[in-house]
Design a protein around this nucleic acid. Structure first.
Lengths: 142, 142
DNA sequence: TTCATATAGTTACATTCGTAACTGTTGTTT
DNA sequence: AAACAACAGTTACGAATGTAACTATATGAA
């Protein structure tokens, strides 16, 4: 019913607002520093954290669409931040691995990421920050 | 530092994942039922809840970019779900108001929205749901 | 072997998006 | 009043997106 519906307390709206707020704050950093898109940053971060992966494995880790991953990989490759290696056993597969430059960019953004995370944690307070993280993780199983 | 950085606990990632999860669940409803985009749904909902508004007021309420609002209004108008009325005093301004059909679509989606919200609340439990809402609202002031 | 099916990843195309520039109107300064 | 800044809303254009079709390789069954 219309009367029971309140936009301000509708969870998809609340989540989206908050998510934009939090995401865009950090996006400014990788965008201004390296002109990266979010997909590119996420691929870089995933490769940085897990080492060499295939495109499909990146899809699994990030939940990004495979075309986004394909394009992000291409773009990161153009920057010479990653190199591809054909898998010997299965020639459909390419192992993707960051170059020294890629790792260096990743490390630089990690520092910024840690600082940003700390900023948000200080804003919310340790307890609320932990609570929020737990709740968000719980929502993955929705 | 790279070592201190963990993707899984990085708030922008957590938020975005959770937000997509929650938002897409409801998007399926308005998309399948009316072929609406998110912008269109948000404009419809805002007009439904607050009555007649100008485009700029919708921007203020939703945080949507003004071009998105402009396009969404045009598209909703094409469906004959809203009508424009020129403001007499300021001819730059248009008052936007839902038609009976628009209100009917809004009402129908409100029911679905209430049901969806309830589903998520039952999944999380009342306490966690309330806590999450509070935390998300708090983040608006970040 | 051969045919069908599945998978990794890319590309084409149409849609959506954001930035910036634009039109038209109002308000302010001189 | 004339000139100029501010504002409501739209449009143009390039970039990013999602869907679906595609290429190439691998796997499995007949």
């Amino acid at each position: 019913m219309k009367s029971q519906f309140d936009l301000q307390s509708f969870l998809p709206f609340l989540m989206h607002h908050a998510s934009e707020k939090v995401s865009l704050g950090f996006r400014d950093i990788y965008r201004d520093r390296y002109r990266m898109t979010r997909s590119e940053w996420r691929v870089l971060a995933t490769l940085g954290q897990y080492g060499a992966l295939t495109a499909t494995e990146i899809v699994t880790h990030t939940g990004l669409h495979k075309t986004k991953v394909s394009r992000a990989v291409f773009s990161i490759e153009k920057r010479r931040w990653l190199k591809r290696r054909q898998d010997e056993k299965d020639r459909r597969v390419q192992r993707l691995e960051l170059t020294a430059q890629g790792i260096s960019a990743f490390t630089s953004l990690c520092e910024a990421g840690v600082a940003y995370n700390r900023k948000v944690r200080e804003f919310l307070g340790d307890d609320d920050f932990a609570r929020l993280s737990d709740l968000l993780i719980k929502l993955n199983d929705l």
